[in-house]
Design a protein around this nucleic acid. Structure first.
Lengths: 147, 147
DNA sequence: TTATATTAAATTGTGTACAATCTAATTATA
DNA sequence: TATAATTAGATTGTACACAATTTAATATAA
């Protein structure tokens, strides 16, 4: 009895092109982020900080889909660079509050160039970008609803 | 003069949901792949091997968007597990040929369960999956055309 | 209230990823 | 054909990512 293995073909996967596309696009951020002395992970942390000014590690992790094992060293690095400050919450000492520093606020203007340059790397029409965005968040929202 | 920072909002990015979705979906493969004694990276290598039986590291890297720095240790691990064999090409000793082993071929039947289970993790309609797939490969093909 | 359970970060260990460099084999060229 | 250039993998160093565990703080319950 011959089995049908089509479902195991690389070209029939959804996860693989997601994974490859994500990696390749992140790789294209690196030369742009180097000018800001940021890695991609540090950059998405700073995007949250630019919007919120202050947040604890748990909330940050939920927003970015990252756990403390990843965030702890990244946040220590960002503090060393002077972009953020870390301090325990007075109300609940278990919480670590992350605060954007002056140097981090100043970085925002320089960062404006990044999305401009990155958009040149993606050859999708605006409506295709919107459709992709919508589909990705449909999946991500579903993932969140499962927890 | 107030600047508009909307382009730096997390919710306006395309890369971030790609990155998060890819990570979360790969994470959902792990318990399924554990039964096959594979990691996700090892799994996508095996998907190529099931289709091709034989390939060299360079071609494999081009298919998977991975370089030798990543592949070398992964392929050594797969050889240790007995799923593949590594041998230098007789025609050109620079090339390393990867060959699927008996144990690797046998793994294919067990792997058939993986895409079935994974499809339950993704709440997209079939036509949405197709659209997403198409958009991702449009980007990936463009990336390839740049090199 | 004291013991138990829960929670938030940090730590530890394993496995990618990739830039940069190195080494050996092959190819191209003066 | 000797030398230079190129190519394929391997190696090294840095930075995630996450499961599992630990630690300290807080909340809950007997």
């Amino acid at each position: 009895m011959n089995k049908n293995y089509d479902s195991l073909k690389l070209e029939n996967q959804l996860c693989f092109p997601l994974y490859a596309c994500s990696k390749e696009l992140v790789r294209r951020y690196q030369p742009l982020l180097q000018k800001l002395d940021l890695t991609y992970t540090q950059y998405i942390v700073m995007m949250v900080m630019w919007e919120q000014k202050e947040i604890n590690v748990k909330s940050l992790g939920e927003k970015l889909f990252l756990d403390s094992g990843t965030l702890t060293p990244v946040l220590k690095k960002l503090e060393t660079k002077g972009y953020i400050n870390r301090s325990r919450s007075k109300e609940d000492e278990r919480n670590l509050n992350i605060c954007i520093a002056e140097k981090g606020i100043a970085l925002r203007d320089k960062a404006l160039e990044v999305p401009i340059e990155i958009s040149k790397c993606v050859n999708l029409a605006p409506e295709e970008v919107i459709a992709m965005h919508k589909g990705l968040y449909k999946i991500l929202d579903y993932f969140k609803s499962e927890e």
